[in-house]
Every structure is written in structure tokens, then in C-alpha cells.
């Protein structure tokens, strides 16, 4: 223990900050578990929202919401990961022309800072154009589209999932020692080979972190779901939506995710069913936790035997 007062004070503050954070998270998780675990049952996880869901305690199952979250996350990240990695490589390995790099940098900062409801509004303006009706469904007689579908929301989700992927990958790529790049160049490898075989594999843990953050952002977003996926929270998806020939129609239709389900069934929304809200929140947390653990596992580089 250092003897100087200021040192002790500093250490005390640091300990305190860490401790408070840990306690807050622990209380939150505990609260969620305590409140939500009673609601969770096989029926809750695999059922569909009930018709009488406005009544307290009977808002039915959350399967469509779980599926909705997974779809939005999957499609959003499907766009965000390759694009984010590409941008990160451009910003670190190339940075030419300078004006483009600078512009991209600023753009990423902007996207990172802007609330998702702004993107949702923007998406509504774009995707409601008649010529984009194939992404959602046309509104009869108006020449416009509903702009509310899994496609539309996923595309905007990609935008909010992108910045963490870029920033985290960027940091990881910068962390790949220059010596390794030089070693590859000195062996007569081109830039692309070096990036593909040395830089990106070396940056894998950082990229995985970025993907995790991106998934968290998308899974946690409500505004885009609300505006671009429709207020279809209590609506069950069409029968047999998962059949391949129905899938396209399903993806062009409105839907729900766990976040909107939580909002809807909470006392703040229309359901006044705190039980199911907590249950859904718990499920959301567990889903994200599982995805994160899987990602960390897979990003860990195992080299050789032993």
C-alpha cells in the first residue's frame, strides 16, 4: 500500500469505480433473473403471442420475437461484418487517397454517434419508395411501399452494427506488429496476401469483439424495429413462414423482436404484463451471452497441437 495520501485516494477511487460497476451489473442481472425466471416455460419460449395479450400475465409466447431478433441480427451482421472489415482494412492498411480515408473516418464517427431512430426515419423515407417495394410490400394504389419488413430493418441495422465492427477491427489490425507485415513482404508476398493471411488472422480476436458489440447494438435496438419492422408485436407470423417458399414473403413482412416485445408487454407499453417483459428481457440477455461466448471461443486462435 503506497503511503502518499494522493496515491491512496487514487487507488480508492479506482477500486470504488470497479466495485460499483460490478455491484450494479450484479443487481441488474439478479433482478432480471428473479423477476423473469418464473415466466419462462417451454410454452413461453415456443408459443406465439396470445390474442388476449393486453391482459396482465397472458401475453403469450415469444417465439416470433426470438426469431425476429435472430433474423435482424443475422441479416444486419451479414452486411456489417464484411463491410466493416473492409472499411477497417482500408483505414489501416491503405489510407489512400487521404481525403477518402478522412471522410470515411468521420462518417464512421457520425454513424456511431447518431441515435438509431434517425436512421429509422431515413430508412422509412427511402424504403417507402415504390421502386423499393420488393424489399417490403407495396401499399395498394399509392405507388409507395410499406417500408416495414425484415429486409428494410436489417439494412438499417447493418448501419448501426457497422461502427463497432470497424473501430474494433481497426484497433486490432493496428495491433498486428509491423514486423509481421515486413516479414511477409520480405518473403515476396504481395499486399493482399499479407492482409489476407497475416493481418486479418492476427486481428481475429479484435474483429470478434467488434462483431459482439455490433450484435449487441442490433439486438438491443428498438427504434428501427419500431419504425421499419412495424408495430406487429402481437401479431403471429403466418403459418408455415419457415418453409423455404414462404420465407421470402415472410422476410418482406412485418414482424417483431424481443426488444419491441419487451416494450409492448411492459407496463410502459400496452400490455401491462411485467412478468413476460422480464422473461423476454432475460431471454434476450441469455441469447446475447450465448452468441458472445460462441464468438470468443471461435476467435481464439489455436495454433497447432498442444
Amino acid at each position: 500500500m503506497p503511503t502518499r495520501i494522493s496515491d491512496r485516494l487514487g487507488i480508492g477511487i479506482a477500486y470504488g469505480a470497479g466495485g460499483i460497476l460490478m455491484a450494479a451489473v450484479a443487481v441488474l442481472m439478479l433482478w432480471l433473473v428473479v423477476q423473469g425466471v418464473g415466466t419462462i416455460s417451454w410454452d413461453f419460449l415456443t408459443g406465439e403471442p396470445a390474442a388476449g395479450s393486453l391482459e396482465q400475465g397472458v401475453s403469450g409466447g415469444i417465439l416470433p420475437a426470438i426469431v425476429g431478433t435472430l433474423i435482424v441480427v443475422a441479416f444486419g451482421m451479414l452486411v456489417a461484418i464484411p463491410m466493416g472489415l473492409g472499411v477497417a482494412i482500408f483505414l489501416t492498411e491503405y489510407r489512400q487517397p487521404a481525403w477518402l480515408a478522412k471522410g470515411t473516418d468521420t462518417a464512421i464517427d457520425l454513424i456511431f454517434g447518431v441515435p438509431s431512430v434517425v436512421f429509422a426515419l431515413f430508412g422509412l423515407a427511402i424504403f417507402s419508395q415504390g421502386w423499393l417495394a420488393w424489399l417490403s410490400n407495396p401499399v395498394g394504389g399509392t405507388g409507395m411501399a410499406t417500408a416495414q419488413s425484415f429486409f428494410c430493418s436489417s439494412l438499417m441495422m447493418a448501419l448501426i452494427g457497422l461502427p463497432p465492427v470497424v473501430r474494433s477491427s481497426q484497433a486490432a489490425i493496428l495491433g498486428v506488429p509491423n514486423q509481421q507485415r515486413e516479414a511477409a513482404y520480405a518473403l515476396g508476398k504481395g499486399r493482399l496476401t499479407t492482409i489476407r493471411r497475416i493481418v486479418v488472422p492476427g486481428a481475429r480476436p479484435g474483429v470478434a469483439t467488434g462483431i459482439m458489440l455490433g450484435i449487441g447494438r442490433i439486438a438491443g435496438d428498438t427504434a428501427i424495429v419500431w419504425i421499419l419492422l412495424g408495430g406487429a408485436v402481437l401479431q403471429a407470423p403466418p403459418d408455415g413462414w419457415y418453409l423455404p417458399w414462404n420465407l421470402l414473403d415472410f422476410l418482406r413482412s412485418e414482424g417483431s423482436t424481443l426488444t419491441t416485445y419487451i416494450y409492448f408487454s411492459s407496463p410502459a407499453g400496452e400490455g401491462n404484463s411485467p412478468g413476460p417483459a422480464y422473461g423476454a428481457a432475460l431471454v434476450l440477455m441469455v441469447v446475447i451471452l450465448i452468441v458472445n461466448i460462441a464468438l470468443i471461443r471461435s476467435s481464439r486462435r489455436k495454433i497447432g497441437k498442444r
Binding site: 509481421q180 515486413e182 516479414a183 518473403l187 515476396g188 488472422p201
Partner: peptide, 28 residues
């Protein structure tokens, strides 16, 4: 350039094998 750098190899101050297996380092 790539041909030049194969004709003129280089060994660096700090040993810098790639984070791969021994075999892959050479195979690369």
C-alpha cells in the same frame, strides 16, 4: 517487387515468425 524480395531474402533483428505452426511458417 515480389520476385525481387524472393531473390533477396531478409532476416530481421527481432525474430519474427508468424503466429502459425512451424510447418506453416515455412510453407507460407
Amino acid at each position: 517487387l515480389n520476385l525481387l524480395r524472393r531473390r533477396v531474402g531478409m532476416v530481421f533483428q527481432q525474430p519474427n515468425p508468424f503466429p502459425m505452426t512451424i510447418f506453416d511458417n515455412v510453407a507460407f
